[in-house]
Design a binder for these strands. Structure first.
Lengths: 339, 339
DNA sequence: TTGTAGGCGTTATCAG
DNA sequence: CTGATAACGCCTACAA
C-alpha cells in the first residue's frame, strides 16, 4: 500500500504538499498539483483513513444501535440514516441491542472506543447514565423512535398517541365499542403513548376503558399472539382489535387464523406500522403507517448538524405524524363518513 | 479523554507497562497490575481503538455491502453476520448498494480507505476487477447469496436450483401443467439458478418449457406485479405461478388481488423466501424458505477464519439447502402424495 | 520485572 | 508557493 510519502517522492515534492492537494486546504500551483494527481493515479494511492482519523480526531463514522435490524421498521429507519449519511461521506456501524440493557451498554463502550463522530440509537431506556456521560464527554447523540424522560437529547419520533388515537377512532366510527388493544413492552415511550391514544379515542366516544381489553403483547409476534388469545377468549368477544406494532399484528393474525375467524366479518383489525405485505393480502390490513424512513433521515439530519454545524444549545424533539392507511380489515370500504 | 500516559502517570509506571496489562502480552507483577487497573478505573480510561488500529494494522471492523437492508432477506443475513462477528469483537459497517455498480465501486473504495479487516458482500457482479484487486491486495472477502463466475472467492449461497425445483415440482405434483414463473433480474446467479430449477422440474414431468410463461420481474415488487399482469393476461391463463423472490411474490399477490382472483381456487402460488407474514394470512403462502440467517452466519465464519486463522489456499463454496414450507396457497393440504 | 524509543500515516504549525 | 517538524495514542523490539 503506497503512502503519502511514496506519492510525494514520485511527484518530487514533500508529503506536506501532497496532503494539501488531498485536503484542498491551501493553494498549490497548478503544475505541481497535476504532477501530484498523476502520481496518485499511477500508484493507486488511497489516503489511510485511520491515520487521518488519529490526527484529525474525526472518523467520519457514526454508530447506530437498534433493537433488531430484522424488524422492517428499524430496517427502514436505518436505511434513512444510511442514505443521508452516505451523501455526507459518513459511514455507519450497525449494532443490534435486542433490547438488552447490558448489550446496549457494552455496545456504547465499544463505539466510544472506536471514536465514532456521532450516535443514533433506539434506546432501551436502561442506560441513561452511560448516555449522559457520553453526551457530556462531547459525543453528539440523537434518539430515534423513543424518547427518554426529560427529553434532554435530540429526538425524532412519531406521534404515537395521535397514531393510536386515529386507529381506534376509525374503529369507533364504524360502530365498534368493545375494542381490544394489544400493547407493547412496558417501559418504552411508544407503548405508553399508544396506550394513551387508545384511551383518548375511547374517551372521545364516551366509552369506558375496560382493563381486560388491554393485553400486553411484549412487542413481539409471539407475545402478540398470546395477547390475542386472551382477547379472543373474552365473553363477549371484542368486535375489533388494535395491535400496537407490526410484530404484534402478525401475532394477532396468526391467532385469528388459528381460531378460523374471518376478518373483518368476525373481527375487525387495525395494525400499527405499514408493510407492503399488508396491502397484498386479503383482507388488506388497515394500519397506522409510521414514516419510518423519514425518521431515520431526520435523525441523521439532526446528528449531522450537531457534528458539523453549530449545535443548538437545547435539545430538539421532532415529532412526525402517523397516518391511517385504510384497507379492508375493518369492513366496509367507506373512506369518510359524516360525524 | 485520558490516554495511556495519564494512566501510567497515575499508577506511577511507564506507558509500556500499562499497555502490557491492557493487551496481556507479557507478565506484570500483581502489585503494579492492580495499581494500574485501579488507575484505569478511576480515570475511566478506554484505549483508543484508532491509535491501536494504526499501529496494529487491524481495525476489528468488517464491511458489509447488501443491495438493500430494507429487504428482509438481506436484513436476516446481516443479522447473522453481526451476531457472529460481535461474539468475536468485530463490528460491522453496513452499506447499501441498491444494485448500482458505481455505488458498489465507490463503497469498495471507501471501505478500503477505512482499512476494514474483511468484507462480506452481495455482489452486483459488475465490479469483478475491483474485487480482484482488493482480494489480491490481501483483503479477505466473502461473497454471500450470489456467486461470481469462476468461484474464485469464498462464497456462501443457497441451492437456488434445487429450491426452485422443489417449488415447481410441488405444483406439478398437484396436477398443474401450465406454470408461470416470475424470475429476477438477469445477470445475477440466483436468477439463473432458479430458472434452471424451474426448467428442470418441468423436464422431470415431461412438460415443455413455454417462454411466454417465464416473465422477468426484475427482482422487485413492482416488476413482479407487472410480470404477473403479463402472465394473467395469457390465454389460457396459467393455473399456477412460481415467484422467484420475496418482493416479486408481493407483486404477484398485489396483481392477483387486483384481478379479484382467489388463491388457491383460481390460481396456485409458490413463493421464494419466507416471512412470518406469509404464514399469518389467508391463504398462507407456500414458499421456499432460504436459511438467510445461516447464510450470514456461515459467511461470517468463513471470513473470520480468513482474518484470523490460517486461510485455506483455495476458495470455498458453501451451498445451503432451501426448504419447502407448505401452506395453503397451492390448494389441498396434502403433505405427500404417491408418485 | 520494567522502561526507552521509534514509528504506524496523516495533518497542521511554523518557517522560508 | 512549498517544506521541515512535531504531534495524534498506541504497541513492541530492545535494553536494563
Amino acid at each position: 500500500m503506497p503512502t503519502i510519502k511514496d506519492v510525494a517522492q514520485r511527484a518530487g515534492v514533500s508529503p506536506t504538499t501532497v496532503s494539501y492537494v488531498l485536503t484542498g486546504s491551501r493553494f498549490v500551483s497548478p503544475g505541481t498539483k497535476t504532477r501530484i494527481l498523476g502520481a496518485i493515479a499511477e500508484l493507486n494511492y488511497e489516503p489511510d483513513q485511520i491515520a487521518r482519523s488519529l490526527r484529525a480526531k474525526r472518523t467520519m463514522t457514526v454508530g447506530m444501535i437498534v433493537s433488531d435490524i430484522t424488524n422492517p421498521f428499524y430496517a427502514d429507519i436505518v436505511r434513512g440514516v444510511e442514505d443521508m449519511l452516505r451523501d455526507r461521506h459518513y459511514s455507519l456501524i450497525l449494532c443490534n441491542s435486542d433490547e438488552a440493557p447490558e448489550r446496549e451498554l457494552v455496545t456504547l463502550q465499544l463505539l466510544s472506543r472506536k471514536k465514532i463522530d456521532g450516535l443514533i440509537l433506539v434506546a432501551t431506556g436502561a442506560n441513561v447514565e452511560a448516555l449522559r456521560a457520553a453526551s457530556l464527554s462531547g459525543l453528539p447523540i440523537v434518539l430515534v423512535d423513543r424518547r427518554l424522560p426529560g427529553d434532554w437529547l435530540d429526538t425524532v419520533l412519531v406521534d404515537d398517541c395521535q397514531g393510536a388515537e386515529i386507529a381506534v377512532r376509525h374503529l369507533l366510527q364504524r360502530g365498534h365499542r368493545r375494542i381490544g388493544a394489544i400493547v407493547g413492552r412496558t417501559g418504552i415511550s411508544t407503548t405508553d403513548s399508544r396506550r394513551l391514544g387508545y384511551e383518548a379515542a375511547l374517551a372521545e366516544f364516551g366509552v369506558a376503558v375496560d382493563p381486560a381489553l388491554i393485553q400486553n403483547g411484549q412487542s413481539t409476534a409471539r407475545g402478540g399472539a398470546a395477547a390475542a388469545q386472551a382477547l379472543l377468549a373474552l365473553t363477549p368477544r371484542p368486535s375489533a382489535i388494535f395491535a400496537a406494532n407490526n410484530l404484534m399484528t402478525v401475532g394477532l393474525f396468526l391467532t385469528i387464523k388459528e381460531h378460523s375467524l374471518r376478518c373483518p366479518q368476525d373481527i375487525a383489525v387495525v395494525g400499527f406500522d405499514d408493510t407492503v405485505w399488508l396491502s397484498a393480502f386479503t383482507p388488506g390490513v388497515t394500519t397506522i403507517a409510521q414514516p419510518s424512513y423519514d425518521l431515520g433521515e431526520r435523525a441523521a439530519g439532526l446528528l449531522l448538524d450537531r457534528m458539523t454545524g453549530q449545535p443548538p444549545a437545547s435539545p430538539r424533539v421532532i415529532v412526525l405524524p402517523a397516518v391511517l392507511i385504510e384497507r379492508e380489515s375493518c369492513g366496509c370500504q367507506i373512506t369518510r363518513r359524516a360525524g
